[in-house]
Amino acid sequence: MTAALEASGLTKTYGTTTALAGVDLEIATGESVAIMGASGSGKTTLLHCLAGIVTPDAGSVRLSTPAGPVVISELGDKQRSALRRSAFGFVFQQGLLIPELTAVENVALPLMLGGMDRPAAEQHAGSWLAALGLADKLGSRIGTLSGGQAQRVAIARAQVAAPAVVFADEPTGALDSHTSTEVMDALIGSTTAQGRTLVVVTHDEDVAARCARILRLRDGRIVESRTRVGADGEMQLIERDQA
């Protein structure tokens, strides 16, 4: 299987705090990876570095694209923005949806930012929302939706531009267990089931258990990696502590 994302020697510090201390990581195309760890372990910083939201102090992140590999960590701000628009999708705990836009406008936004005309973008966005069970909520403002519905809008927005990789940061953090299961079904069904790569940062063991691989971070290092193997899907410890 080819690697969708490769990170090597990622280091990032904020003032005197070391968020990442030399992380090496390879994520295969179509794989789902959960990144776990205590608060302050560096998992969100790792996700931000992989997605080009922040640049690492040292090390590199390489993305495989149809046009050849791209070293994200070497790109300028504009190029990283363009890459986030075209190659990545994002789902965050709060959804980070735009409250003044309707559901369909929120989902259509990445397409419009990519240059698509509004009617076409909204038609495409509408079909994604319908696929996620929100056909009757297209014109609703985000504030009128439930937490689970808002998160499904965020999932639709993350998928609408057909990204190679979807990043999710605590996607079920604000939801009850039933809604959390529904949201994860929607997330997995629209990513790895379609051959896309999924990277999830979570505290929730149940959410992590839905992924093919679980990484645990402590003090900015990967200290454990468990991969699902065999027909029964049991998790096995493949490696421990990069340091």
Binding site: A51, D77, K78, L83, R84, R85, S86, F92, L96, P99
Partner: peptide, 16 residues
């Protein structure tokens, strides 16, 4: 500011 941070993550250039 939350909206602007959100748009930045979506890949909207600050110029836009």
């Amino acid at each position: 500011r939350t909206l602007y941070a959100s748009l930045d993550r979506l890949g909207m250039p600050v110029a836009a």
